[in-house]
């Protein structure tokens, strides 16, 4: 498994990266941690002529939590996400999800930006971002724009990221204090993509669910924002009937591929199980 040849570029600033992308054209790709792109290149399913490495673009790094607004640079690694106490307290679902991605070595290079921008339906963070209603800051030759995670994913490896654009950062409104969270993922083994996974965030008030977010991983061509499942929860006491209604709503939108993780019927079923378990866990954690 040997990749094709390419020329390598290491810009120091985002502007430089963007102008490289523009000048080198469509046979150029940006690389962050490389754990999605390099395996594709080794299979020669991707054969870029130019690789633009973002590792030294300082402005793409860093985690900031200020006034209820979380901003995470696209080049922040999963290991840095896990290690951030600030994030763990403001938005604990990020650590929970990051710990379920791949393995330690991959988390030490794999980035949050790469995970969300690459459009692989198997990646975990896209659904988490949809549950958090995060926004992606995209920078291109025309300047900067924001696209919300719920509108970003168009198909397998197809996103709203325009040609010549780079994901710069992720913005998340910190969930309310006392919220409950869970990322429930079933996989065959460490390092695998989800057979089915669900991200859930809940806010409770006097035993009643005031706000709910539900999103699903790897049970469709894109991450799936399960709005109907949310509706089934809001206003309920998260009793068994409401949980089952949410699970049913999630199953209704799941369209998983049939692969070594199991036939479609199993993965649809499991989607419901993951949603139900994530709701239960989030409920237990909600203060």
């Amino acid at each position: 498994m040997i990749p094709g040849a390419f020329d390598y570029h290491r810009p120091r600033t985002l502007d430089e990266a963007i102008s490289l992308l523009a000048s080198l054209g469509e046979e150029s790709r940006v690389v962050a941690g490389g754990h999605s792109l390099i395996p594709m290149m080794k299979l020669r399913m991707a054969v870029p002529e130019h690789l633009i490495d973002l590792r030294e673009v300082a402005e793409l790094r860093g985690i900031a939590v200020e006034g209820g607004q979380i901003t995470i640079g696209a080049m922040t690694t999963q290991q840095e996400v896990i290690g951030s106490e600030e994030l763990a307290s403001a938005c604990p679902i990020l650590r929970e999800a990051a710990l379920q991605i791949a393995d330690p070595q991959i988390r030490s290079l794999g980035t949050l930006g790469g995970n969300v921008a690459n459009g692989d339906p198997g990646n975990d963070m896209p659904a988490v971002m949809q549950a958090l209603d995060a926004a992606f800051v995209l920078r291109g030759p025309e300047g900067e724009r924001e696209v919300v995670a719920r509108a970003f994913y168009e198909g397998p490896f197809t996103t709203a990221l325009g040609e010549g654009e780079v994901l710069a950062a992720i913005r998340i409104a910190a969930p309310a204090a006392g919220h409950g969270w869970a990322y429930e993922k079933q996989k065959r083994k460490i390092g695998d993509y989800a057979t089915a996974a669900a991200a859930v965030l809940l806010e409770l008030e006097g035993g009643t669910c005031r706000k709910a977010s539900v999103a699903l991983t790897n049970v469709g061509d894109t991450p799936l924002h399960a709005a109907d499942a949310e509706a089934a929860l809001v206003g309920s006491s998260l009793d068994a009937a409401a949980v089952e209604a949410a699970a049913a709503a999630a199953r209704a939108i799941a369209e998983p591929a049939e692969d070594g993780r199991g036939p479609r019927a199993f993965r649809v079923h499991l989607t419901g199980v993951m949603v139900a378990r994530a709701i239960e866990a989030a409920k237990r954690r909600a203060g």
Binding site: Q186, R188, T195, A240, V243, E244, A247, A248, R261, G262, P263, F266, R267, H269, L270, G272, V273, A276, R277, I279, E280, A281
Partner: peptide
């Protein structure tokens, strides 16, 4: 005996009614 086959066995034996919370 991977996850899906075991689940199919359970389903065939009528064990997998829906509510599925842990």
């Amino acid at each position: 005996h991977d996850h899906w086959r075991v689940w199919q066995t359970a389903q065939r034996l009528g064990l997998t009614g829906q509510p599925a919370a842990a």
